[in-house]
Nucleic acid binder design. Structure first.
Length: 513
RNA sequence: GGCGAUUUAGUGUAGUGGCCUAGCACGCCGCCCUCUCACGGCGGAAACCCGGGUUCGAGUCCCGGAUUCGCUACCA
């Protein structure tokens, strides 16, 4: 079989795109590109009750940010549109009629309240071959009464008539053959007259068929309804062009049990959405990967490896490399706990690949947030500062913690370091150090280090104590890059100014009694 | 409850009957580097769900059980 690969990502606009949905979209995209196929974005807005304004734009923006390109969709257009289900009502009506005419479906008048009562009355009640004749539908009622009810405008649904006693086979590309008895399936609602809209199952099958989808790649939560979908393809007479099914393992909570949820992110401190989301109804704000400082490449790489591997030990891969290596053979079957710690590592890794100047540009907004005017320093200065500390950051905003001292004087001095490195004698030595620094013919790192270290040694001073007091005065704590790299960038004047300031402000600990 | 899926270190995973004294990565611990904190380098602790079977040989095949997850709506 050499049919064109066509896959679709079909989210419902009921809120922000969940990170699990993002991964499903990603796998669809990787598979499509790998096989020179097409990626379709279809908006499944058949649940008018749960529609959330802004959700569709969010989906587009999120996929765009991640570099998941859509070939056919609501925005992109394409030969099989419209790509929004609420605009395909005529198509669904026509197909529902097709099923009705063939006796594959029937009309049911049972109200939600009646069904609810039935479920309470009979445990494990299921609307199927064994019960449908005792319900109010076109199978149990005379034709003229059915017609009368419809003419009167009574609300009804169309149910799929499942024939019992069959073994339905679903061939899943990850899990192999899954067989299920048709008896355990219920007569699913395919269409509701109340809003003149189909349910997921009908719309999904009709659209996948009409849009010539070759592979249905979706989350594992759909596996139980896959047999129903197979039966629908058969009922329509489309069995020979039925797509291949691929059910992806779910993304689970990092700790505990169950599916990853928004609450887990709040609880454990990581985003579960690609972009920040402002809920229009509640006003709640949910964190996004983008706003949290993640690079899209890192998110893609991280997500790709949650449930798939390239078959070797390679971990850091660009999206093009992922495309080149992607296949379902290396997809895992079990759900993956969401390892967000590794996501941080990926971001760290990708940040290291950015050149210093690009990173400095990204740092500028952070500087402004902290009240620093970047123009006071210039991009070259910022770039050099960034270069010195980049290896220790996982996020752009971490740059402030590690390089902030290049831009603002210490406001306080780490008490523990003061206790350890700043004694009564230190101010005297620091004053000597100032004299040494002032006398330096060349203030750049190498030569100044030579002179200062020699001065320390010649005077019999303690290397660790002097250098750390020096560092404490300049940085505010005992950490950071090589001391003389710092002073070279900061300059003689600033360096000496900070030492003087420290001498004034640091009060050595009272000696213990 | 029913149905389905699932099961390798804390986590993500490699493994397609002998090359497995089970590999890689994140995380954790230690050492080195060193004026400090990191980075980096080196090293370490840490896993085949359980029970039967098949086989000369099982993480890998079969059976049973358990586990975990999902589905069980006029939601997707």
């Amino acid at each position: 079989m050499d049919r064109e690969v066509r896959v679709r990502f079909a989210p419902s606009p009921t809120g922000p795109l969940h990170i699990g949905g993002v991964r499903t979209a990603l796998y669809n995209y990787l598979f499509a590109r790998r096989n020179n196929g097409k990626m379709i974005l279809r908006i499944e807005d058949t649940d008018s009750q749960r529609f959330v304004p802004g959700a569709e734009d969010y989906i587009n923006e999120a996929l765009g940010w991640l570099g998941i390109k859509i070939d056919e969709g609501v925005r992109e257009g394409g030969p099989y549109g419209p790509y929004k289900q609420s605009e395909r009502r005529d198509i669904y009506r026509e197909h529902v009629k097709m099923l009705l005419d063939r006796g594959k479906a029937y009309i049911a008048f049972d109200t939600p309240a009646e069904l609810e009562a039935k479920r309470n009355e009979i445990q494990n009640f299921q609307y199927d071959a064994s019960t449908r004749l005792s319900m109010r539908n076109s199978l149990s009622m005379p034709a003229d009464e059915v017609k009368r009810l419809i003419d009167e405008g009574t609300q009804y649904v169309v149910r799929f008539k499942i024939e019992p006693g069959r073994n339905v086979e679903v061939n899943d590309l990850i899990r192999g053959k899954v067989v299920i008895k048709s008896d355990i399936l219920d007569d699913k609602v395919l269409y509701k007259s109340a809003d003149d809209l189909p349910t997921y199952h009908l719309a999904n099958i009709v659209d996948d068929h009409l849009m010539k989808v070759s592979h249905v790649i979706r989350g594992e939560e759909w596996l139980p309804s896959a047999p129903l979908h197979v039966l629908l393809y058969e009922a329509f007479g489309w069995a020979d062009t039925m797509p291949e099914f691929v059910h992806l393992p779910l993304l689970l909570k990092p700790d505990g049990k169950g599916k990853l949820s928004k609450r887990d992110g709040d609880r454990l401190g990581f985003p579960v959405f690609p972009l920040e989301w402002h809920d229009p109804a509640s006003g709640n704000i949910s964190r996004g990967y983008r706003e949290s400082g993640y690079l899209p490449e890192a998110v893609v790489n991280f997500l790709a490896l949650l449930g798939w591997n390239p078959g070797d030990d390679t971990e850091v891969m660009s999206i093009d490399e992922l495309i080149a290596k992607f296949s379902f053979e290396h997809c895992s079957k079990a759900g993956a706990k969401f390892a967000y710690e590794k996501g941080k590592w990926f971001n760290h890794t990708y940040l290291q690949q950015l050149d210093d100047r690009a990173l400095a540009e990204l740092f500028i907004p952070v500087l402004k947030e902290h009240g620093v005017n970047p123009d006071d320093f210039g991009i070259d200065y910022i770039t050099r500062a960034v270069a010195m500390v980049k290896s220790r950051i996982s996020f752009v905003r971490d740059l402030w913690e590690h390089a902030g001292f290049f831009f603002v004087d210490p406001e306080s001095y780490d008490p523990k370091a003061v206790k350890k490195r700043w004694s009564e004698d230190t101010p005297r030595i620091m004053n000597e150090l100032i004299a040494q620094l002032e006398a330096l013919p060349d203030f750049s790192a190498k030569p100044s280090e030579e002179v200062i270290l020699k001065w320390i040694t010649d005077n019999g001073y303690h290397m660790g104590n002097v250098m750390n007091a020096f560092r404490l005065a300049v940085v505010g704590e005992c950490k950071g890059p090589h001391m003389f790299e710092i002073t070279e960038l900061m300059g003689r004047e600033k360096t000496i100014e900070r030492i003087k300031k420290a001498i004034e402000n640091i009060k050595p600990d009272e000696p213990a009694l």
